[in-house]
């Protein structure tokens, strides 16, 4: 129990650190690199939340498939919107 609490606290602190990185990145990095940094940090945050807060590390099979499904559908949205945006 104690260990679980410590783990959650560590993950939370890691998320706060990543948030700080996003804010810092928005001031220091510009242009295309800015998008790479913000999306990269966001992906790291999502991974932490999926793995620890949503407890996918202890789940198996079908539940993980559903979680990956959500990511896949987000990828569909972003890919097809990007096709429009870059060829407009």
């Amino acid at each position: 129990m104690e260990q679980a609490r410590k783990r959650l606290a560590t993950v939370w602190l890691a998320l706060l650190a990543l948030l700080a990185l996003t804010v810092a990145g928005s001031f220091t990095v510009t242009g295309a690199a800015s998008a790479v940094v913000s999306f990269g940090v966001a992906a790291a945050k999502v991974a932490l939340i999926f793995w620890f807060f949503m407890q996918l590390r202890t789940e198996k099979g079908l539940i993980r498939v559903f979680a990956v499904g959500a990511i896949a559908w987000l990828a569909i949205l972003l890919t097809l919107v990007t096709i429009d945006k870059v060829t407009r």
């Binding site: 097809l80 096709i83 945006k85 060829t87 407009r88």
Partner: peptide, 11 residues
């Protein structure tokens, strides 16, 4: 609506 014609062709 102003969507790119390439995207429109895919859709």
């Amino acid at each position: 609506a102003g969507q790119s014609m390439y995207a429109s062709a895919v859709f």
